[in-house]
């Protein structure tokens, strides 16, 4: 069996000197999607920000394709193939939609975005508009497209479906599954099951800053899962 794309062990960390998550261990296999679930405020976003490099780990280890990246800055992790979509302020409000999508290119070519525009025509209609003028859901879609269009080996998404209409959540799920089939890997933080059920290969449930359940997608019924994240 191959080494996992992402492995984190005994991760403890948070804001300042107060740990929000404690000793969390997990892994993301190549071409698979791990969904991190849990109620509001249990430390899901903290975990994701530590994985993306926005928050330092107080202790524990993060390895990308076997390489220790625990102390790397977010932009360095990006260069190694980690694309991150943030939960809060997911887009550059002061830039146009087009600039948001092409910021890291040397040209303004949108070819890589075309498949996404077919699914989300709203973006194509608003290319010249400032991203700050979009609705919350539209911003999430813009962030989603920006994160996926580069086909990064590992994509971290923090509540990508928040505020997004159900038919567009379907489109998101389709894209993620397609990319998984291409060998790309995902770690997705979600609060609701709608998107998670369609994309997950495994679940990790957090509560009170600790991991309380880790399982493969077939090992648990929907009822049990719902119970875990609503208790």
């Amino acid at each position: 069996m191959n080494a996992p794309v992402l492995r984190f062990e005994n991760l403890t960390g948070g804001y300042g000197s107060i740990p929000i998550i404690r000793e969390i261990t997990g892994r993301v296999e190549r071409g698979s999607c791990l969904c991190v679930l849990g109620r509001n405020g249990v430390g899901k976003s903290t975990l994701l920000k530590m994985l993306s490099g926005h928050l330092p780990a107080m202790s524990g280890q993060i390895a990308l394709n076997g390489r220790d990246i625990t102390s790397l800055a977010p932009e360095k992790r990006h260069d190694l193939g980690v694309n991150t979509g943030l939960q809060e302020r997911p887009v550059f409000d002061g830039l146009s939609v087009k600039d948001n999508l092409t910021l890291m290119q040397s040209d303004q070519d949108l070819e890589g975005c075309e498949p996404f525009f077919d699914a989300f025509p709203v973006l194509k209609d608003r290319l010249v508009q400032l991203a700050g003028t979009l609705s919350g859901g539209e911003r999430k879609i813009l962030s989603f497209v920006r994160t996926l269009k580069d086909n990064a080996p590992l994509t971290l998404l923090d509540e990508p479906s928040e505020g997004v209409q159900p038919e567009n959540i379907e489109h998101m799920a389709n894209f993620i599954c397609k990319h998984k089939a291409n060998g790309q890997s995902f770690l997705v933080v979600e609060q609701h099951l709608h998107l998670a059920e369609e994309i997950a290969d495994g679940f990790q449930v957090l509560d009170n800053g600790r991991s309380v359940l880790e399982c493969k997608v077939g090992d648990i019924t929907r009822g049990e899962l719902v119970q875990q994240i609503t208790v």
């Binding site: 490099g53 977010p74 932009e75 694309n83 943030l86 997911p90 550059f92 600039d99 910021l103």
Partner: peptide, 24 residues
Amino acid sequence: VTGRRIQAMVDNPDLAKAVGIPVD
């Protein structure tokens, strides 16, 4: 491009780092 990246950095430093802009 650099001008836009500066705007992006000022607008949203966390996201700028996430998309790979060498902010420092």
